[in-house]
Simulated assay, not measured.
Amino acid sequence: MAVDGIDNEIKSSALDLIGNTPIVALDRIHPGPGRILAKCEFMNPGASIKCRSSLHMIRKAREDGLLEPGQPVVERTSGNQGCGLAVVCSVLEHPLIVTMSKGNSVQRAIHMEALGAKCVRVPQVEGTYGSVTNADVQALEEVCTKIVEDNKAFYVNQFSNTRNSEAHYLTTGPEIWRQTGQHVDVFLAAVGTAGTFAGTSKYLKEKNPKLLAFVVEPAGSEPIKGEPITKPMHLLQGSGYGVVPDLFDYDHMDGTVSITDEEAVKYMNLLGTKEGLYLGYTSGANVAAAMKLLESGKVPKDAWIVTTLNDSGLKYTPVPEELTK
């Protein structure tokens, strides 16, 4: 028997846990002037922002007749998209096979397989463990193609699937606008597939044409800025692959911010010790970029900067010792 009010608090599945993440003020790292506000995407059931696009891409594929009930799903991933897809596919009963570089954290493979997915780890072409290059990502494509053919599977193709960025236009952007009381001066995000940045910045700029949107790139791997690639290997897994992503749109960008591994680690550690949040490298990079902007004079000193805390620190191997000194 239903109890009045109780049913409204009970979620029907893990899919209902995706999105509507809270925003937290990072006032201990930056007490002002201005404010850094961060969307807590690590609180999604797959522990990353990729749960949003995973749910949207799979739902739309089913609605469009591209994915039949029970049909296998295949994707190449740095780990987070695979974890998000594993959440969605387990609930919707689709077998999931993902390819992931051996350079990505093994913790991600463990996570996906715990949710019922099969993770095929592909040897690196030029990177090292913890640093994955575009060549490593491209090596996944050939393996993926064969798996799709052998299993008559649906290939998600997050790097070119416009439903990826659409997920953030429909959810992340509107949530930020509502949660901040329609007060967003700056939005910034690290870019991998560019889905988060493209969809969120498009929505927020429609609401506030004066809003400034910045891309966060690893120092030495800044193709969006137009710089030659001098450091293809860096710690920001899932971003900075050295190419301009298919989903990226310069129309919604006002500039870029370069972040070193050391800066990302510094703010990742500060998020833990000052804000009580154990997060990954791109989260540290996003907050480091927000601090840089506030100190640079490129944005008003009293600006409210919104960014994303992309994933849990539990998805990573410990920080290299030389970067913590």
Score class of each variant (00 low, 15 high):
Met1Tyr: 14
Ala2Gly: 05
Gly5Glu: 13
Leu15Thr: 10
Gly19Ser: 11
Thr21Gly: 00
Ala25Val: 13
Arg28Glu: 15
Ile29Tyr: 07
Gly34Arg: 00
Arg35Gly: 03
Ile36Ala: 12
Ala38Pro: 00
Ala38Asn: 08
Ser48Trp: 07
Ile49Ala: 03
Arg59Lys: 15
Ala61Phe: 03
Arg62Val: 11
Pro72Gln: 13
Val73Pro: 01
Val73His: 05
Val74Asp: 11
Arg76Ala: 11
Asn80Leu: 12
Val88Asn: 00
Pro95Cys: 06
Pro95Tyr: 09
Pro95Ala: 07
Gly103Asp: 08
Val120Asn: 12
Gln124Tyr: 10
Thr133Phe: 11
Ala135Ile: 09
Ala135Phe: 06
Cys144Gln: 08
Lys146Leu: 11
Ile147Tyr: 00
Phe154Cys: 09
Val156Tyr: 01
Asn157Glu: 15
Phe159Ala: 13
Arg163Lys: 15
His168Gln: 14
Tyr169Gln: 10
Tyr169Arg: 14
Thr171Met: 04
Gly173Val: 08
Pro174Trp: 11
Ile176Phe: 05
Gln179Glu: 14
His183Val: 10
Val184Ser: 02
Val186Asn: 04
Phe187Glu: 00
Phe187Asp: 01
Ala190Trp: 00
Ala194Leu: 03
Thr196Ala: 09
Ala198Pro: 02
Lys202Met: 14
Tyr203Gly: 00
Pro209Met: 03
Leu211Ser: 12
Val216Leu: 02
Glu217Ser: 12
Ile224Asp: 08
Gly226Gln: 03
Thr230Val: 13
Lys231Ser: 07
Lys231Asn: 15
His234Tyr: 08
Leu247Ser: 03
Asp249Trp: 10
Asp251Gln: 15
Ala264Pro: 06
Leu271Val: 09
Glu275Arg: 04
Glu275Ala: 02
Leu277Tyr: 05
Tyr278Ser: 04
Gly280Ala: 09
Tyr281Glu: 02
Ser283Met: 04
Asn286Gln: 08
Val287Glu: 01
Ala289Lys: 08
Lys292Ala: 07
Lys292Met: 13
Glu295Gly: 08
Ser296His: 07
Pro300Lys: 11
Trp304Leu: 12
Ile305Met: 07
Ile305Ser: 00
Val306Gln: 07
Ser312Gln: 03
Leu314Ala: 12
Tyr316Val: 00
Pro318Ala: 13
